[in-house]
Design a protein around this nucleic acid. Structure first.
Length: 341
DNA sequence: TTCCAGGACA
DNA sequence: TGTCCTGGAA
């Protein structure tokens, strides 16, 4: 065990802390927004979203009054959209049950949708000084190396073990600083690949460094199965240059985002197949062109064909191409929209 | 081109 | 315990 772990860590933090927008505030609403946006998202990628989010929804009341579509549009491209849906639910609850005062106690936060142990610990330690230790990916990496913990990363036994070690340390100082210091240290020094053991102030007592197994920790889970899917999107453009879109509502990827008419198949289809499929619904259609791309998700690879057709009719609920920019779309669909506009 | 990081929830 | 997504690094 490293002597004065918390003291050294916080001294390091005071000198090396990153100047991030959400570190200038103690407003629990803003801290919450930053924590949700940074879930599963790197700081570089998340920061622009945080800034435009706060600009558009400066407080929880404004957020609760927005429509889900507006909210999703602001977050288009961020990924893991269920967290955004949960933010909307959470904002409405805070307005009603907490009179728009965002809670700062762990016991209240943990009950809100989209807030788990990590986020509740982060907000409560930063905003009300509660001694709840955050255990995110950075902390898991740091501790698994310092103490040579061989449990699978992200397992509950791993998190429990780390909290047990850390909970004595967090009591000694400002718990918000301690938590942010932990995560900064894990991300800046004890990084996944380019770990900087030469700069690490704990390397003398680090088990992984001692046994030269830093690159073997933390132990990763392997062999996830990846399925291949074939999506066919029909972009049918009518006489007034309008198209039809709808919101995805299935229990599947991209829930609550918009898309064109979709036909999922077991294999790639031909132009003839596409025409045959559309002929049942439209008369006098002409095939214009096909865009194709491949899109990878964690557990599936999507082979997506976009079939662009023109038809000799006028849709009742069509949307003109420039107005598509007002709707939230998954990344690959938005890529194609930019091409056809 | 492939690999990989990163919390909540059913 | 598997599934949500994206983009940067290798």
């Amino acid at each position: 065990m490293e002597n004065n772990f918390a003291k050294k860590l916080i001294e390091w933090y005071k000198i090396n802390l990153r100047d991030l927008p959400w570190r200038k505030t103690n407003d629990p609403y803003k801290i919450w927004v930053s924590e949700i946006i940074l879930q599963q998202t790197r700081i570089d990628q998340g920061t622009p979203y945080y800034l435009s989010f706060i600009n558009k929804f400066p407080n929880v009341k404004k957020l609760s009054e927005s429509t889900l579509d507006e909210l999703m549009k602001v977050c288009q491209g961020i990924g893991y959209y269920n967290r955004i849906v949960n933010m909307h639910k959470c904002a409405k609850i805070v307005v009603i049950e907490y009179n728009s005062n965002f809670p700062t106690k762990y016991s209240e936060l943990i009950k809100l949708p989209g807030i788990g142990d990590y986020t509740a610990s982060a907000i409560s330690s930063i905003c009300s000084g509660e001694s709840k230790m955050v255990v995110d990916g950075n902390v898991i990496r740091l501790f698994s190396r310092l103490y040579n913990l061989n449990y699978q990363q992200h397992s509950s036994i791993m998190k429990k073990t780390i909290k047990k070690i850390g909970e004595k340390e967090i009591l000694k100082f400002n718990s918000g600083d301690f938590n942010q210091a932990l995560m900064d240290y894990g991300s800046m020094i004890c990084s996944p690949k380019k770990y900087k053991c030469d700069k690490c102030i704990f390397s003398k007592s680090c088990e992984a460094f001692k046994f030269d197994i830093v690159d073997e920790l933390p132990v990763k889970k392997k062999n996830i199965t990846i399925s291949q899917r074939f999506f066919n999107y029909f972009v049918v453009i009518d006489k007034s240059l309008k198209v039809k879109i709808h919101k995805r509502k299935e229990k599947d990827i991209w829930n609550n985002l918009y898309e064109f008419e979709l036909l999922e198949t077991n294999n790639k289809i031909s132009v003839k197949d596409a025409e045959t499929y559309l002929e049942e619904k439209h008369q006098r259609l002409s095939f214009k062109k096909k865009h194709q791309l491949s899109h990878k998700l964690t557990h599936q690879v999507l082979s997506i064909d976009f079939w662009i057709f023109e038809v000799d009719e006028v849709f009742k609920y069509g949307i003109d191409l420039p107005s598509l920019n007002n709707y939230p779309f998954p990344k690959p669909i938005f890529t194609i929209i930019s091409k056809i506009q």
